[in-house]
Design a protein around this nucleic acid. Structure first.
Length: 492
RNA sequence: CGGGAAGUAGCGCAGUCCGGUAGCGCACCUGGUUUGGGACCAGGGGGUCGCAGGUUCGAAUCCUGUCUUCCCGACCA
């Protein structure tokens, strides 16, 4: 089967779909808007999950698990949050099916099994968690509560895209409770930094740390912090969010604690999450027209070895040299696969592993053995080099680190080259239409202006960068005075 | 949810207008030759034509409904 990939230039959306499908990450399913994550894609997610999970635990968090279903009355308790999600909630109304007597062999919803109270399938878990926290918290001695859960959530999206926006997706959601405002804000910022660290150092994805405008804020939050990444087509993608929830949920669920002076106070809250959407970001940030390009630190498979031989005798000699090499690489903590299957030829394997984004390929043939070398090819640049078999394991280890760094540097150079400061409306529109990427511009700080800009250009404020330099200027649309630039972009 | 397109073997497609034995390439199986960028020869298997109704002697083909996907829009943390 030939697996041609649509080029980015020809059709960026189709290129993305081709990569996800042909790279073996995911498949469509029989359920509208829901995808099947295939073993290779799930292995990638597991690697990401494991790293993040360790980071959460290293910062004092513990995992727990809360129910998938949320009684409607709990869900609606925090009004803004409920309102924000209401339009995309799946709702369970019945608990039983029965045989359809009018239609033999078919089932129907049993009208007598209607639920007394409908259950909302969680689009996020603040409600059920804060309802639970009420029972866990009495005194300041019970705080902080630092809990995370790995879960699936459902948001009934109108238009879905593999990994980027699906009706059901996997994520983690951290939910913490604190005695003071300051501590909660510090937690929000700390977790944002964990996300940024993960994105940059593991996914090789440069991100901008920032705060959302009021319009883009999480429903029910006082402040939403985010990391924003730039894709190769110049569109921005929100890669993670961390919310300072103030006392909104504590008030909605009546969660109070006695402080040291025995005064009753409402608890301060945060929540933060990243999802399988990160896989979409990974694909779009690094890959090329030959397939996926995965950063070595989270690639499901770091090295593939392809033998090239004529006849069993040569194959045996190659095995003799390769098997110890595999042990050596594994001992160095490198994941490796020896693809000596005989049903495809080397050229096919080369193309296949390029499609799957395996960072390093080693090809070994009879000629190489004579010269005590192997051909080492790196996926990111497709450069090939002849490398001595003596000490090749340490060479590979260095190479993997180098690839990780190069991928990051390349993405960062692209990102930095696509943050364009503008001072006039004409420039603003022109950059969005002709260059795209982030546009750094003055904004008067009002929701009305932001909304108007969105209507006119489809660009939204992605974030107000943290540590943003303050400078006097005038809003590109309204001309009103502004104290700082913010980042606009068209986004996923 | 609106507009457009598509669904026929695992994948990519032809056949549909004009109803009459379901085809091609790749993949798969067997045997052989091969193996440094998607090998070749010979033989072989596999499809209730997305699903459900309808029209007809007869439906992949015509009609109705429905599901899934893609593109564009609306919506979206």
């Amino acid at each position: 089967m030939s697996k041609e990939i649509t080029s980015r230039e020809q059709d960026y959306s189709q290129w993305y779909n081709d990569l996800v499908l042909k790279g073996g990450l995911a498949d469509y399913s029989a359920v509208r808007g829901c995808m099947v994550i295939k073993p290779y894609g799930f292995a990638l997610w597991e690697n990401m999950r494991d790293v993040l999970d360790k980071m959460f635990k290293d910062t004092g968090h513990q995992n727990a698990y809360f129910p998938l279903f949320i009684p409607k009355s709990l869900f609606e308790a925090e009004e803004k949050n409920a309102e924000g999600f209401a339009k995309e909630c799946a709702v369970v109304t019945h608990y039983r099916l029965k045989n359809d007597t009018a239609n033999p062999g078919k089932l129907m919803v049993d009208p007598e099994a209607k639920l007394e109270e409908e259950l909302v399938v969680r689009p996020t878990s603040e409600a059920i968690i804060w309802n639970t926290y009420k029972g866990w918290i009495q005194s300041y001695r019970d705080l902080p509560i630092l809990v995370n859960q790995w879960a699936n959530v459902v948001r009934w999206e109108m238009r879905t895209r593999l990994f980027l926006r699906t009706a059901e997706f996997l994520w983690q959601e951290g939910h913490t409770a604190h005695a003071t405002r300051e501590e909660a804000i510090a937690e929000t910022q700390k977790m944002l930094e964990v996300y940024a660290d993960f994105a940059e150092n593991w996914m090789a994805l440069p991100v901008i740390r920032g705060v959302k405008s009021a319009n883009e804020r999480f429903a029910g939050a006082e402040d939403t912090y985010c990391i924003e990444a730039l894709m190769q087509d110049g569109k921005a993608l929100q890669a993670g969010t961390s919310h300072f929830l103030g006392q909104n949920f504590a008030k909605a669920f009546d969660v109070k604690f006695s402080d040291r002076e025995n005064k009753l106070e409402y608890v301060w809250a945060t929540s933060w999450g990243v999802s399988t959407r990160l896989i979409g970001a990974l694909v779009m940030a690094h890959s090329d027209d030959s397939g996926l390009v995965l950063p070595p630190r989270i690639a499901p498979l770091q090295v593939v070895i392809v033998p090239i031989y004529k006849g069993d005798e040569q194959k045996a000699k190659i095995d003799e040299r390769v098997l110890p090499l595999i042990q050596e690489l594994k001992a160095a903590g490198i994941s490796v696969k020896y693809d000596d299957s005989d049903n495809t030829r080397p050229g096919w394997k080369f193309a296949e592993y390029e499609m799957k984004g395996v960072p390093v390929r080693i090809a070994i043939g009879a000629r190489d053995l004579e010269n005590n070398v192997a051909e080492v090819a790196r996926r990111d640049t497709k450069e090939k080099a002849s490398v001595s078999l003596d000490g090749i394991a340490s060479h590979i280890k260095t190479l993997l680190n180098d690839i990780q760094e190069q991928i990051y540097n390349k993405a960062k150079a692209f990102r930095d080259a696509n943050i364009t400061p503008v001072n006039t409306w004409d420039e603003f529109v022109s950059v969005l239409d002709n260059k795209s990427g982030f546009v750094s511009a003055h904004w008067d700080g009002t929701g009305e202006t932001e909304e108007k800009i969105k209507e006119l250009t489809k660009a939204t404020i992605r974030c107000i960068p943290l540590d943003n330099p303050q400078e006097a200027g005038t809003c590109i649309l309204s001309g009103k005075p502004s104290t700082q630039r913010v980042l606009f972009a068209r986004a996923y």
